[in-house]
């Protein structure tokens, strides 16, 4: 019964996701449109580094990271723990401060982007507030942004339908399964229609079957909404299945060792593509990259 509930997300239409206005990017309009071939990247990172002091000396969480992400990409960050993939995502979200380098999100600094509410962050755990119903949880950001009650109701209803949680509005988070809770947190992130979705191992705690279904749904959501998604994971199949671009990272110091283009797998993918030679070729290259990164240690 649970699984059946996980499978639907199909009824997405583009207009559904937006709070009405469909402007793909306010920034794009502000920018000169003279050069449509190379639009300004959504995320632009140059020589970024982040070091923090631990008890036994400095830890180089990120070192000389360079990365450009274009609008509408689905980018996965993959690497072993300690490679700085979560740190990088948190720097983009302005939840962590870098020591050096330049970073622009939607053309402005991460802190300006955060204050402008440019992104929705989805954490490893659902982080739903247990004293709020599912509906109230989805409405939380809207409440903070001062959106009227009628509008909040309307948007939360639409988002919960989108992640197939219709009928669970009045439930409390602890009355739902882990997969349903994580879907509610995705609805919460989508409720204020951010341009950028930052996802930090969102399905890491779920079992593989639920995870497969959520991956398929996420892909459909991405295809329909045309949002830019940054997705941290440590699963190779998940990264290859979801992404148009895969960033392979390595620890000590945390750095990027390979950037793989996977856009030729197309935007609409079925779980079956995981058996195809193209898929396996990319997976192989990711694995090679991870192995190369690890050889430093042994």
């Amino acid at each position: 019964m649970q699984l059946k509930a996980e499978t639907v997300l199909e009824r997405v239409t583009e207009g559904d996701v937006m709070g009405g206005s469909k402007a793909p990017s306010g920034l794009a309009a502000a920018r000169p449109e003279s050069d449509p071939a190379t639009p300004a990247p959504v995320v632009d990172i140059k020589d970024l580094s982040l070091t923090y002091e631990a008890a036994d000396g400095p830890v180089y969480a990120l070192s000389n990271v360079n990365l450009q992400i274009a609008e509408g990409e689905f980018v996965s960050f993959i690497g072993p723990s300690g490679c700085g993939k979560t740190t990088l995502l948190r720097v983009i979200a302005d939840l962590e401060q870098p020591n050096g380098g330049h970073i622009h999100v939607n053309g402005v600094s991460p802190s300006e982007a955060r204050v402008r509410r440019d992104y929705g962050f989805i954490f490893q755990a659902p982080a739903l507030y247990p004293w709020r119903t599912i509906q109230k949880n989805v409405e939380l950001p809207l409440e903070i942004f001062g959106i009227s009650k009628g509008e909040r109701r309307e948007r939360s209803r639409r988002q919960l339908e989108l992640v197939n949680l219709k009928g669970f509005e009045k439930k409390f988070p602890w009355q739902l399964s882990g997969g349903m809770q994580q879907r509610a947190s995705i609805a919460r992130a989508l409720s204020f229609d951010p341009r950028l979705l930052l996802m930090d191992e969102p399905f890491g705690a779920l079992d593989e079957i639920v995870r497969d279904h959520l991956n398929e749904q996420l892909l459909k959501l991405w295809d329909k909404t045309r949002k830019t998604v940054l997705f941290v994971t440590h699963s190779i199949p998940e990264a290859v299945f979801l992404s148009s671009m895969i960033v392979v990272m390595s620890p000590r110091p945390g750095r990027i060792i390979d950037i793989i283009d996977a856009s030729h797998l197309g935007r609409e993918r079925k779980l079956e593509i995981r058996e195809t030679p193209e898929f396996l070729k990319i997976a192989h290259r990711v694995r090679e990259g991870l192995r190369a990164g690890h050889s430093y240690d042994d």
Binding site: L95, F121, Y129, L140, I144
Partner: peptide, 26 residues
């Protein structure tokens, strides 16, 4: 209040009082 819950409020650019009333006091 947990780190994720606080980060969530920060990602919404919520101020001190909003965070106090919507997260920390509950």
């Amino acid at each position: 209040a947990g780190r994720l819950e606080r980060d969530l409020m920060r990602s919404y650019a919520a101020g001190y009082w909003t965070t106090l009333f919507k997260l920390r006091l509950p």
